[in-house]
């Protein structure tokens, strides 16, 4: 503490300082002064919470949209269900609108137009991210479902299993294995995109870093620190995904 004050005074006065002294002052100022690390920590907490919520919402929406769209496309010729056709239309509009507009614009509209009166920016942000992620996840899952050999569906149905059981026990497990890398990619993008909710006032990691920058007039350490924290989070995520993928590959043993 005294060390920091003394070296800070040297820097402010323009006296010559060593690289170590500079590093110490800026690092202390960015992360330790006034217990600022707590702001980053609570920011990381929010980031993870938003990611988790958006992930769950995205997966639920994605699975729902993908299954409805696949079921619609796989109807027997001549046996078209009008309700399914209508719902399928809505799903298509959803995917088109979400994929066709920037994430940032969606956040601003949700935060300042649709939920303009809400003060709960984090929830609004998580909701927006989840809805956004759902559209991408839906297309990834749909691709996975379509990539499973048609013979698998035929074999399941020929045994007398109904469509839902065949999907649940045969098609979906194989699709999940095939799409895991793409899904992991989407989850990583989602984790990093949580930084965007700072534009509507969501107090996540980047919001904390920006607060520190505006108080200390020093950008390098808070932002690089933030980048390193995101990197570590993503690496942990990738590691977990790798474990999961290896477990799913059990049936490839020869």
């Amino acid at each position: 503490m005294e060390q920091y004050a003394a070296w800070k005074a040297l820097l402010v006065a323009g006296e010559p300082t060593t690289a170590w002294q500079k590093f110490y002052v800026f690092f202390y100022q960015a992360f330790l002064e006034n217990d600022r690390w707590q702001q980053y920590l609570s920011g990381v907490g929010t980031t993870l919470l938003v990611t988790l919520f958006a992930l769950l919402l995205g997966v639920v929406l994605g699975v729902l949209v993908a299954i409805i769209r696949t079921a619609h496309d796989q109807q027997r010729p001549g046996k078209h269900n009008p309700v399914l056709g209508f719902v399928n239309g809505i799903m298509k509009v959803y995917v088109t609108v979400i994929r066709g507009t920037p994430m940032m614009v969606q956040l601003l509209i949700m935060g300042f137009v649709i939920f303009a009166s809400s003060r709960d920016y984090v929830t609004v942000g998580a909701l927006t991210l989840g809805i956004n992620s759902g559209a991408y996840t839906a297309e990834i899952i749909r691709g996975g479902l379509m990539s499973v050999d048609q013979g698998q569906m035929e074999a399941g149905r020929s045994l007398g299993l109904n469509y839902i059981d065949t999907m649940r026990f045969i098609i979906v497990p194989q699709a999940v294995k095939a799409i895991l890398p793409a899904l992991g990619n989407e989850f990583i993008v989602l984790l990093k995109d949580t930084s965007l909710i700072s534009v509507i006032g969501g107090k996540e990691l980047l919001y904390a870093a920006r607060g520190v920058v505006s108080r200390t007039y020093e950008a390098m350490y808070p932002y690089i620190g933030t980048a390193i924290i995101y990197l570590i989070l993503v690496m942990m995520f990738t590691w977990l995904l790798g474990i999961f993928e290896r477990r799913l590959r059990a049936s490839d043993r020869r």
Binding site: Q152, L159, I170, Q174
Partner: peptide, 11 residues
């Protein structure tokens, strides 16, 4: 039914 390509469930 038995298929040309077996169609066993690989999972």
């Amino acid at each position: 039914m038995v298929f040309q390509h077996f169609n066993l469930f690989p999972n």
